[in-house]
């Protein structure tokens, strides 16, 4: 491995990693929101909407992100819907992640006994108040491991962003390999930068998880 090559590549990778993180965080945040709304619709058994949500979850969970992106980026413009690569990457990630997050939230909410909801309602709370103050906080503790796994999974999924010509880590690595043939250095930096992004998430996640398990032991 050549240290000079590594040093000269470093700024490119840093740039690319920032893009990956920025789009990843945005997409995951949106996926959280979508998941939360979808889970609430399923939990409250809202007619019609719940069928739509179910269909969406099945579709998002059973198709690969790469294909979703191809369709969003190359297919949709044919209908006159133009998007930027960045918007495409973020919305693709949000579409995929929303389905996974919905399932995680839903199973957490369903793990809370319905009588908890009833006791909140019998205190005069509205459905929304009971959900947000009583059911959701408890469900979050239950869902946390699944949500965390989804965050890591979605962060990893950003690696297909290069397919819609976003200059992320994969794009940079492939580009450099093609241009200069410094395969070893290019791949080394690729691995290092993904580790820099993913390891902290994974470590912090398992730390919180352990704390939650301890706190929830007597629930």
């Amino acid at each position: 491995m050549n240290a000079d090559v590594l040093r000269s590549y470093l700024p490119l990778y840093k740039e690319a990693a920032l893009l990956t993180v920025r789009l990843g965080v945005l997409g995951i945040a949106l996926a959280f929101l979508i998941g939360l709304v979808c889970a609430a619709v399923l939990y409250c058994k809202i007619p019609v909407l719940r069928t739509v949500v179910r269909a969406y979850i099945e579709l998002s969970r059973n198709t690969p992100l790469l294909i979703q992106l191809f369709f969003l980026y190359y297919g949709l413009p044919k209908l006159g819907i133009r998007t930027t690569p960045e918007a495409c990457g973020v919305s693709g990630l949000a579409f995929l992640g929303g389905g996974y997050m919905a399932e995680a939230f839903r199973s957490g909410m369903e793990a809370i006994a319905p009588i908890q909801l009833e006791s909140a309602l019998s205190l005069g709370m509205t459905q929304t108040q009971a959900l947000s103050a009583v059911i959701l906080p408890q469900a979050l503790t239950v869902s946390f491991p699944a949500l965390m796994a989804n965050v890591i999974f979605l962060m990893k999924e950003t690696s297909v962003f290069s397919a819609v010509s976003l200059m992320d880590l994969m794009f940079t690595a492939k580009d450099l390999i093609g241009l200069y043939y410094n395969t070893t250095e290019s791949l080394f930096l690729l691995v290092v930068f993904y580790l820099l992004i993913l390891l902290p998430i994974s470590l912090v996640g398992s730390l919180i998880e352990r704390r939650l398990r301890y706190a929830g032991a007597g629930l």
Binding site: I115, Q116, E118, S119, A120, V134, P137, Q138, T141, L219
Partner: peptide, 10 residues
């Protein structure tokens, strides 16, 4: 008031 108390554990 319920048989199983149903306090909010969190």
């Amino acid at each position: 008031v319920f048989q199983s108390y149903e306090l909010f554990p969190h």
